[in-house]
């Protein structure tokens, strides 16, 4: 895979893809590189889309407003109210809606033609969303049951013979306080990184094979191109799915923190 002379071999993508050179403010904490720029662009795009669709929100909605309302209702009914119930769902709907929409749009950056990188494929944003979810479900649990009650229900789940607590409680501690936020962040990050790397691999392979391949090998370039198209479609699906799963898991963790018995 490693070629020493650049420009004549095939450059498979590596993790360096996710650490592009800085464009502005190199070296400072406000460094803007391509990925940060893409994030800002996606954020502005999301805000513009939502704002323009709901600017003159009427009781009988226009088409753009209907689309936004469709997504909002999907989040509210399918994610919030089905896991959290009506009352609790109402309180956490804004947060979960924000998480869903932001992650969805950031994920979609990977298939948008001139952006070509998902805003969530560098660890900062997934980690931040996971921390938001973490703080939210801990706060929800402590608010609902008090600190002691929360720890008792979650770390010492009822209905288990007391001897098993020696085994179960450390796992539960790890789960609640460490693993949940990390798996949330990591799941999103790994999916987006892998998807991006696959796309880059397919399309760079296509260009390499078609331009530099000899003879019939050019035809495999067509194969990789078709595979690239397929993986683009798959990436679209994965973008939506990962956003849904992140939001759903946040809701599920909140519900698990709040409920009285396991």
């Amino acid at each position: 895979m490693a070629e020493s002379d650049h420009g004549s071999g095939f450059h498979a993508p590596s993790i360096q893809e996710f650490f592009p050179p800085a464009i502005w403010f190199d070296g400072t904490p406000f460094e803007i590189n391509r990925i940060q720029l893409v994030r800002y662009i996606l954020m502005i795009g999301l805000i513009l889309w939502l704002w323009l669709s709901t600017r003159h929100a009427k009781l009988v909605p226009s088409r753009a407003q209907s689309v936004v309302e469709l997504l909002l209702d999907f989040v509210r009914v399918q994610i919030c109210e089905s896991t959290l119930g009506k009352k609790l769902g109402r309180r956490y709907t804004p947060l979960i809606t924000m998480i869903f929409f932001s992650i969805l749009v950031m994920n979609l950056g990977g298939v948008i033609p001139f952006l070509n990188i998902a805003g969530t494929s560098v660890v900062g944003l997934p980690l931040l969303f996971a921390l938001i979810a973490y703080v939210t479900y801990l706060a929800a649990g402590i608010r609902a049951q008090g600190l002691g009650g929360f720890l008792k229900t979650n770390l010492f789940p009822p209905g288990v013979p007391k001897a098993l607590y020696i085994l179960l409680t450390p796992i539960e501690i790890l789960q609640v306080f460490v693993l949940r936020p990390f798996t949330l962040a990591l799941r999103l990050l790994a999916n987006m990184m892998a998807g991006h790397l696959m796309l880059v691999l397919c399309f760079s392979a296509t260009s390499f094979l078609i331009l530099d391949g000899g003879g019939l090998i050019k035809l495999t370039g067509v194969l990789t191109f078709v595979a690239g198209i397929g993986i683009t479609g798959f990436e679209l699906f994965v973008a939506a799915l990962q956003a849904y799963i992140f939001a759903l898991l946040t809701a599920v963790y909140i519900q698990m923190s709040v409920e009285e018995e396991h």
Partner: peptide, 27 residues
């Protein structure tokens, strides 16, 4: 459905950790 889905996610969390640990160990 709702109970099953919630418990499925608990189980999925345990299992998925192992796969993700495999991923980051490589890194």
């Amino acid at each position: 459905t709702n109970t099953l889905r919630t418990n499925m996610f608990i189980g999925v969390a345990f299992v998925e950790v192992l796969a993700l640990l495999g991923l980051i160990t490589g890194f």
